[in-house]
Amino acid sequence: MSAYPDDLLYSRDHTWARVDDTVITVGITDFAQENLGDIISIELYPVDSHVKQGELFGVVESAKTTMELISPVSGYIVSVNEDLFDDVGALECDAYDTGWMIAVEINDLGELDDLLDADAYEEYIEQVEGRR
């Protein structure tokens, strides 16, 4: 069984995607946040922004690092988790639920084919870590 929730899809840029019809909820994986260390703050594109698969939708900051957040899908942002602006703690303790970042109305469901399931993402992580 994978260490990552099996009801989600994952990108190679370490974001997860929860599919609910045409609305895709997006966050970052435990792997991403653990490597970042203590996250201090976050900036997210606002509602109604258009994001593209493989391109920026925000930035997170840890003690010494800025990490760009890369969207797993294309579409318009329909919702943003503004609670994170006041307290980013959910990214570390509840990355797959209250740590969600944005919800996107997807343009093309076919883009989901480019994402990985939990087992494939775990394999990808092993490859990434194996390169150390």
């Binding site: 840029d13 800025t66 990490m67 760009e68 890369i70």
Partner: peptide, 9 residues
Amino acid sequence: GSAQLRSHG
């Protein structure tokens, strides 16, 4: 003093 940016691996 040092600092980083990360994106796309």
